[in-house]
Structures are given as C-alpha cells and as structure tokens.
Design a binder for these strands. Structure first.
Lengths: 225, 225
DNA sequence: CGTCAATATGAATGGTTAGTCATATGGCGA
DNA sequence: TCGCCATATGACTAACCATTCATATTGACG
C-alpha cells in the first residue's frame, strides 16, 4: 500500500517546506488565534510567499484543521498506551495524570491551540468545542478514561462512581492546572500541583468520613429561603 | 448619588432598546463566536438598523465587552453569598457545587460566551482566557474558592490540600460537566452528575486507603523505559 | 398642528484579507 | 548546455464588514 521506497530529493524538500509552514502557522495560531492571523503573516513567518501556502493547503481553514488533527493524533498516541496497558486501573489513572505533565509541557505551544480552538471557523455547537478529528480524538480519550474508570469500579478498586462524571472531571481539572501553569512564567510548581490533583482524585478533600447527606440537605434548604 | 427619580418615558424606551440589542448580540455571540457575527446580523436579530447599534455602543468590541461584564457580574452576585456566608466550609463548597446547576442552567446561553471567550479581539495570553472585567470576576471567584479551601484546611475539615490546585480543579470539573450537559438535549441527568462531582471531590475515587506512593513510583519507573 | 430634539435609518466608505493566476525560478535529465 | 516541469512568487481581485453620516422618523410639548 504505502510506498516506502521513494522519498526522492524533490519529495523530501516538499515535505520539509510543508512542515515549515505548519510550524509557523501553529506558532501564530497558538499565540493569536485563528481569526487574528492572516495568511500573509503565516507566509512571512514561514518565509514563503502567500501563494505558496495554497500549493500545500486548499484554504486557511484546511491548514488550521490539519494542524489541529496533527496535534490531536500526537497527544492520543502518547496517552493511549498508558490507558490501554495491562496494569491496574489505579496505576493507569495515576500514570495518565503524571503523563499529562510531560505531554502538555512538550506540546505547550500546540496545546494552546486547543485552548484557543473555540473561535475556529466552526460556528457550531459541537459536542466538544473542537473541530473535526480533534473532536474525535477528544471523544476517544474520554471514552478510554471512562472505560478505565468503569473497569476499576467493576473490580472494586474504585467506589461506585459514575465514569461519565469522573472522566470529564479529571480531564478538565488536569487541563485547568496544566494550562494555568503553562501561562505563568514560573511553572516550577507544576509537578507538585499535578501530584495534588492525583491525591485529590484518589482521596478527596475530606479528612474523615463526614455526613455528606446532611450537608447537602442543609444547603438545599437554604437555597429555598 | 444615583438619581432614582427619573426613568422618564424616553429613558425607559432607550433602556429597553439597549437591552434588546444586548440580548440579540448575546444570543449570536454565544452561538457563533465574536468573529463570526457581523454587526448587520446583530442589527437584524435585534430588529434595528446597523447604525442604531452605534448609538448605544462605540464599537463591536465595546458591545462584546459590556455583555461579558454583565454576565460576569451576574454570576458573581449569585455565587458570592454562598461562599462568603457564615456556614461551615464543607457546606460552602457543597452549596457552591449545587448552586452551579442553577446558575449555569439559567444563564446557559450567556455562559457559552465564556466558553467562546478565547477568540475575542484580545490576542493576548492573559492570565485567564477572558477579557476585562470578566477576567477579574473569574479571578475573584477563584480567590474566594481558595479562601474557603484554605479555611477548611486550617480548621481541619479538609485534608492538607493545596487550595491553588483544588480551586481551579473544582471550577474546571464543574464547568466541564455542566457544559456538556447543557449541550446535550437530555440534561435530565444533570442533577445526578453534579451530585457525582460533589461526592468525587469530597471523597475521591478510591474505595479504601491505597498505597498511592507505590503506584506513582511504578508509573514513573515505567516512564523511563 | 408645527417645531424641535432625540433617535433611527441604511447606503456609502475604507480598510482588511482569503484566495487566484500569470509569471519567474531553479533543479534535473538529456 | 538546453529545455522542461515542479514549484515559488506576489500583485491583484472580489468579498466582507466595521463604522460613519446625511437624512428620515418619532414623539413630546407648546
């Protein structure tokens, strides 16, 4: 199927140019958002002419999508082995949390794209706030997490939590921490913070068993007044 | 200071028109994002002429900002009494979680704005991903949450968690759940899901005390291979 | 009514930018 | 060395859209 035998001179050059464009575009999109970057800017940043970009990508939107997809695939390939290994569900979750540090640190520019993704050319109210493959990848990740949680519950490792609650919660909480750290200059505390998330998720915030039901009731009573 | 005595006919009309424009703009911005909505569209949606909008707002950006600010203030005013009451820190957190349902449900369109906020005319890498007052409000909310957590830890109600980790984590997790529910048609499960978050945060996912440290070590060993 | 001030109107303006295309370039085989 | 083809170029076009402003409408008040 795939021709492995022909990375001719021309072809390799072309591929290099392509990736230079992608790099430049990624930097700019990540920094300023889709609508605030013109093809001119991208061209200048990549040291090509405007028209050249259109030899590689049909439209600005296509370029954007391809970048998103690339990043998404990359992230997924890093996370997948962790969540699908043969280990204990508890270790999978812990491993996922710890891996997030590296993944998000290494792709921090790329990930910013996802933060800024909401603005994209997609005006729709898609399930996630991403577009195209990126949305699928997000869904896949969520699905994997849910499965791990479900398995953990089945085996009695976790309390009978709802995977559809915990999976997005973990994902969102992690993102919040990692991104806020990525934006500050001093990301020194990142490791500790992620460890904090880990503990939070595994053990909760309470010191001892506390009568949750009573509190909830009190709160809703107060609400009605 | 504030003249309470003069909502004359003219003035009241003007105010009504203004809020009709705000409503229309909010609907559109929430649905399609700042850049994908033209002043024309807003004018049509609000049943005014383009120029009329400029009698109320200096620019598109001003309009956007004012909407954001309005929503932010509204949300803050709902949350503040819960977090600053005289109750137990545990109840404050529980109350905050439960209140989020109502708040986000009632302003679901408005809140979508915050989701889409990243795109705004602000290209900067601001601390939060919001602009202007909205950013401040977000910070204020976070600060209040942190204080509650810190107080809870001090009183021994919570384990020695880091407020700077837990506050954003709770916020992000809640948002993730509420928004995903808001986007699905069947939000029937929302109450249960939020209750799930509550339990998750208070008690964690583990059934029993489990040797977290060992797991962490195993995971990082594996990482190095 | 008639007048005036406040407000609404929407066609016109100017600036921006995605995307095109006729032309130039340069590597490569003959 | 020559000519060819893949690729690069960047001035140009067409569309879009925020904003303006000369004009029309409204409704309050004498």
């Amino acid at each position: 199927m795939a021709e492995k035998t022909k990375p001719s001179r021309r072809q390799r050059e072309r591929q290099r140019h392509r990736s230079e464009i992608v790099d430049a575009a990624m930097r700019l999109f990540a920094e300023k958002g889709f609508h605030n970057v013109s093809m001119q800017e991208i061209a200048v940043e990549a040291e090509f002419a405007t028209g050249t970009i259109y030899n590689f990508f049909d439209s600005k939107e296509t370029l954007y999508r391809e970048i998103m997809d690339e990043v998404a695939d990359n992230v997924l390939s890093l996370v997948k082995p962790i969540l699908e290994g043969e280990t204990d569900e508890r270790e999978k979750i812990a491993g996922f949390i710890r891996a997030s540090i590296r993944i998000f640190q290494e792709n921090s520019a790329a990930i910013r794209l996802f933060l800024r993704a909401n603005q994209g050319p997609l005006a729709h109210v898609s399930t996630a706030h991403f577009s195209g493959t990126a949305a699928k990848v997000h869904d896949i990740l969520q699905a994997m997490l849910k499965q791990v949680f479900a398995a953990g519950v089945r085996k009695g490792l976790f309390r009978p939590i709802d995977p559809c609650v915990v999976a997005p919660a973990l994902d969102a909480a992690l993102r919040a921490i990692v991104f806020s750290a990525a934006e500050d200059v001093q990301d020194s505390a990142l490791e500790e913070k992620v460890a904090g998330i880990e503990e939070l998720f595994f053990r909760g915030i309470l010191h001892d068993a506390w009568n949750l039901a009573a509190c909830v009731k009190a709160a809703s009573d107060r609400e009605e007044s």
